[in-house]
Nucleic acid binder design. Structure first.
Lengths: 101, 101
DNA sequence: TACAGTTAGTTATTTAAAGTAACTATAACT
DNA sequence: AGTTATAGTTACTTTAAATAACTAACTGTA
């Protein structure tokens, strides 16, 4: 993506959390750690995209991936501090949506 | 887009303001009314997409379009009350970005 | 031994959105 | 007649998202 002279920080943040499904995944993880299937069931997202998004969020250190070698394998996704710190922004958007839509 | 059972309101809001460029356009308009060219210059967005986004935002009553029949024509875009009410959310994201990126 | 079930994905293909560049209408100015 | 300016539009290419089918690893059952 091109850079904006306007506000590179906002731009970068929007590129990340404005990406489709990202905010909803974070919203879902605010409930607590979740397994891959749980997130997939909570949202109308496919495994393909969920996998892609979780990788991006992991790379940005917004979520943490924990693998439990059970059978079948269990993988849990948890918000990091950085991830949890997005709660305010997500709640603001939620509140706005309640008041204006 | 499919509906999410999770939080249709957040989902709807993110579909709108999470759309590429939308948050940055609103951020820019928080400075005050702006002409088409001014927004286009402030962001690395093309006329094609800016036009498309502004139409969407006008339809959602987040921005208002005013035409002044001067030569050449002047078109100004202003945030409505609904649009200005997004300031809190945008600032939250900006603050998060400052603290965590 | 062979087959179904479970989780957490991946691969392949189609469809939608975004990026890029060139073009248009209108009117003044040279 | 040709140039400049604003606010777009049109045509085309590239990237991202949606959809569906498939895979690996292991268990439990017939």
């Amino acid at each position: 993506m091109k850079e904006t002279a306007l506000c590179p920080r906002l731009s970068k943040a929007m590129e990340l959390i404005g990406k489709r499904w990202t905010a909803l995944i974070i919203y879902q993880l605010l409930e607590g750690p979740q397994r891959f299937n749980a997130i997939e069931s909570a949202l109308p997202i496919s495994g393909r995209l969920l996998s892609e998004r979780l990788k991006e969020l992991e790379k940005e250190q917004i979520v943490e991936r924990k693998v439990y070698s059970e059978v079948p394998v269990r993988v849990e996704y948890t918000l990091t501090d950085k991830g949890r710190s997005l709660e305010g922004a997500v709640r603001e958007i939620e509140t706005w949506a309640q008041n204006w839509t």
